[in-house]
Simulated scan of single mutants.
Amino acid sequence: MQRIIVSVTNDLSTDQRVEKVCSTLVKNGFNILLVGRLLKNSKPLNRAYKTKRFKLFFNNGFLFYAEYNIRLFSLLLFSKKDILLSNDLDTLLPNYLVSKLQNKKLVYDSHELFPEVPELVKRPLVKKVWTFLESNILPKLKNNYTVCDSIARYYKEKYNTNFNTIKNLPNSKTIDLGKFPFNTQGKKIIIYQGAINLGRGLELMIESMKFLNNHLLIIIGSGNLTKELQNLVELKSLQAKVKFLGRIEPRELHKLTPLASLGISFEEDLGLNYRYALPNKIFDYIQAEVPILVSNLPEMKQIIKDYKVGEILINRNPKSIAKQIESMSEKDYSIALEKARKELIWENQEQELLSIFNNLS
């Protein structure tokens, strides 16, 4: 039985992509150790494979990355393994070094264009460091996959490095309805689920709520803009129209998503990482049979064109968005959503993932 050490920099509890990859590999005869970090609010894990979370002294900035990568390098170097699976650029250096030192197979899963994240737009020195790391390692990698065709094409053009596409699709599941922890007063629910960070378009959606009287916006997730958005809601006196639920475990979230009438993904074009984004939440909305309204960006609008499960934003103006949402509420997307729900599931691409691990070069 081949042993794979899988590494990420998060606390493992909400990383659905990595959990699905590990579960698929375990079901197909691989021995998995998943490595991440332990945070103050990290919840206990119950997985079908082994996990390890580092308790770190530093949890952000340069010192975090330095401490985590040193700890990860030591663990990888002295642990039994056959294959290394690095998730994203922030775990790649120790994985690459150990793979070279010990002649081990390395697989790389790029969840995004890491040096192009919006948080680095105004930090040119930090961006330069990550770009240097990427440009010196990626051209040497042979076993790679990423979340969408646009990123795969980007890497091919920039580094002449081949990437397979393994979309971050949800597992097939029955729709099980939960209940919000407050009275929704019979209003139509607009849901956002995911990170609350720069460039998610949440300020725009909050502003749009001024023009929607029969809708309630529910924001589920956490991030460094949470407090700022809560202040915006108070400033605009929209407390009755916008609710924040914080971070929710995936199992519970899956019961809340189907309660919505509309799911939104309003990412801004703040660089290549967002331009090529294909967020998990889009597929989660579809799996819950909730129509979607998305930004006019390549990967997101392609889903709308291919599956007819919602609409593309016509105009990034609050009043225009409100009108489009009102118009969408009068349309029936149920047949298209039912079809897409059966096709866009993790199980339909498991064999593509396994073919990568069974045919490593």
Results as ranks from 00 to 15, higher is better:
Gln193Pro: 04
Gly178Leu: 07
His254Leu: 06
Phe182Met: 10
Thr161Tyr: 08
Leu232Glu: 12
Ala240Leu: 10
Pro170Val: 02
Asn168His: 06
Gln193Trp: 06
Leu245Pro: 04
Ile248Val: 14
Lys173Gly: 03
Phe163Tyr: 13
Asn160Asp: 14
Ala240His: 13
Leu232Lys: 15
Asn168Lys: 01
Gly223Phe: 09
Leu253Val: 02
Tyr192Leu: 04
Lys167His: 13
Thr165Tyr: 12
Lys243Ile: 10
Leu229Ser: 10
Lys187Cys: 07
Glu207Ile: 00
Gly178Thr: 02
Ile219Pro: 10
Gln239Phe: 07
Asn197Gly: 14
Thr257Val: 15
Pro250Glu: 08
Leu169Lys: 01
Leu253Tyr: 08
Ala260Asn: 01
Leu225Asp: 00
Leu256Met: 07
Lys243Gly: 04
Ala240Cys: 00
Lys187Glu: 13
Asp176Arg: 11
Met209Glu: 09
Tyr159Trp: 10
Phe244Cys: 09
Thr226Ala: 12
Ser208Leu: 10
Lys227Thr: 08
Thr257Ile: 15
Ile191Ser: 02
Lys236Leu: 15
Pro170His: 04
Gln193Met: 04
Thr257Phe: 01
Gly223Gln: 05
Leu169Met: 08
Gly201Trp: 10
Lys241Leu: 11
Leu256Val: 04
Ser222Asp: 14
Ser208Pro: 09
Thr174Gln: 13
Asn164Ser: 14
Gly221His: 06
Leu202Pro: 05
Leu225Arg: 15
Asn164Gly: 00
Arg200Tyr: 12
Asn164Lys: 14
Ile189Ser: 06
Ala260Ile: 01
Lys173His: 11
Gly221Cys: 03
Ser172Val: 00
Lys173Ala: 12
Ser172Thr: 01
Glu252Leu: 15
Ile189Gln: 05
Leu238Gly: 07
Asn231Pro: 00
Ser261Arg: 05
Leu202Cys: 07
Leu262Trp: 04
